[in-house]
Design a protein around this nucleic acid. Structure first.
Lengths: 118, 118
DNA sequence: CTACTTGTACGATAGACCTCGTAGTACGAG
DNA sequence: CTCGTACTACGAGGTCTATCGTACAAGTAG
């Protein structure tokens, strides 16, 4: 079995209409989460949580991914023991045109200036 | 005359190079502050704090304006008893091109959709 | 000077948030 | 079935935040 939905392990996501700008901004105002989003943006596919090298424990990582999911920034699904995460580009671009790109560009610029990763 | 805590009435602002994206996003993730920024964006000039009709007390208003100033989103100066506030458009556009416009557009769209003012 | 307007400082409180450790669940491999 | 991997749930600690009330300072008008 490869592409069928995982049994019983469904993660709650906000509907597109429930995504709030304030929630998105709050989610991205944390350096760890901003780093996650930046990596997701550069990745073509969805990534599993373990692919990230974050300066926090696994518990905290779980917390940050949940904040991102519940604010509508990322979409998550299970595949085996892994949990794949991907940006909700379509929804965000539809709700807030140009915002995600501007944010990613801003983050790129800041990291290029300050080199203060994560 | 006692000049106890009156050091010329100058307000501390972060330098342009000290403005952090995370701080800006955090500042704008509060509904009250987002509302303030939206009003400042539509106003041509600087506005005094009392021009805003916010659902919080004066103490809390002072707090929110300070958060906006210390994060680098607004610039403030005294004129008489009034304190004028204005967006730091030049600095923000230079640091994060397109971000402020995208944020304001996103906020406009959300308020148009949800009508959930402040 | 006095009174009023505008905004600040300080303390307090309640809630949210980030972080962690530990214990536990779901899944795949052997 | 047993084991290891990947992730979660829960609770706790410490910090930050939003809000308020009250008392106060700076400036202007009378």
């Amino acid at each position: 079995m490869t592409e069928t939905a995982a049994p019983g392990r469904v993660l709650p996501h906000p509907d597109r209409t429930e995504i709030r700008l304030e929630g998105v901004l709050h989610a991205l105002s944390d350096p760890v989460r901003l780093h996650i989003v930046r990596e997701l943006a550069t990745a073509a596919d969805e990534l599993s949580c373990s692919r990230f090298d974050l300066p926090v424990t696994k518990s905290t990582t779980t917390h940050h991914f949940r904040v991102l999911r519940e604010s509508g920034v990322i979409r998550q699904c299970y595949r085996g023991t892994a949990k794949l995460s991907g940006l909700r580009r379509d929804d965000l671009d539809d709700l807030f045109p140009g915002l995600l790109d501007a944010l990613l560009t801003a983050a790129d610029g800041q990291y290029a200036r300050l080199g203060d990763d994560v």
